[in-house]
Structures are given as structure tokens and as C-alpha cells.
Write a protein that binds this DNA or RNA. Structure first.
Length: 126
DNA sequence: ATCTTGACTTGCC
DNA sequence: CGGCAAGCCAAGA
């Protein structure tokens, strides 16, 4: 398993109940700012594990799950609603309200280079 | 090695 | 807002 995958898993696990992160955000925390699509790939590949994959959606706050065999938008919506996250009929979530932002301490636990953490902190919006 | 395919993002109308 | 093209990068074929 690649280090990237390991980090993605670790990061997603750090997302608390009722909170949401975007793929790009996870990619950023994982040290690969432009690897958002790979995050989706990793989640897909780890289907069946205890990973809270449903807390990862796209940046616009929309559930964009595609072509999954055993999971679909409805399932994900249900899982989120069960945690107290409001999901609209068009599968949209209020990111401003539910977005999870990693603390400095957590970022350090992700074992990223010190200067890279500075880069992340400098990033205001995603 | 080369080409296609995404559970994505960003920028430009 | 909404649609579209390009960018990105790992996996599979």
C-alpha cells in the first residue's frame, strides 16, 4: 500500500461524526494538493473497511458518487443524515457549516514536512 | 511503454 | 448559478 493511501486513510479516519471534508482537502492534507481524484480512487478501493468514506464529498458540497455498485447517493445521504448532517434533495450539503478543518496537532500527526504544514495553513479556502 | 478511466478541481465563459 | 475544457495522477488493460 502506498504512503499516499496510508495517509488518505489516516486522514479520513480523523474526520469526526457529523463533519465533512472535500476530496481536494484530503489530497491537500495527504501531501498531494492536486490528487483529488486519487482520493476518490482510494476510497473506492477501500470499500468494505471501517473507513467513514461517506464524510468525503466534493468541494461544492455535493455528493458526486459515480458508478458504485454497492453504494450510491441515497446510501451516502442516509449515512450523513444519520449523523445529523442536512442533505438537500439535490444531494447538497452546507459546507460552510459542516466542513472539518484539521487542527495543527492533527496535521502533525499526519507526518507531513513542517514547511508543508505552513503551506496548508496559508491556504485559506477550499 | 501507451492509452483510457475516474466517488475531483479550477478557471473561463 | 450552469456548462465546458483542461489539468491531474494512480490503476488497469
Amino acid at each position: 500500500m502506498s504512503p499516499f493511501k496510508q495517509r488518505v486513510i489516516q486522514i479520513v479516519r480523523a474526520v469526526p461524526r457529523g463533519k465533512i471534508v472535500s476530496y481536494g482537502q484530503v489530497a491537500l492534507y495527504a501531501g498531494a494538493p492536486r490528487a483529488a481524484r486519487e482520493v476518490g480512487w482510494v476510497l473506492h478501493a477501500t470499500e468494505g473497511s471501517d473507513l467513514p468514506w461517506w464524510r468525503v464529498i466534493n468541494k461544492a458540497g455535493v455528493i458526486t458518487i459515480r458508478g458504485a455498485l454497492f453504494v450510491d447517493k441515497e446510501i451516502q445521504k442516509k449515512l450523513l443524515v444519520a449523523e445529523g448532517v442536512e442533505v438537500s434533495d439535490s444531494f447538497k450539503v452546507d459546507m460552510k457549516k459542516y466542513r472539518f478543518v484539521a487542527t495543527d496537532k492533527q496535521l502533525r500527526e499526519f507526518e507531513l514536512p513542517e514547511e508543508y504544514i505552513g503551506t496548508i495553513i496559508r491556504q485559506k479556502g477550499f
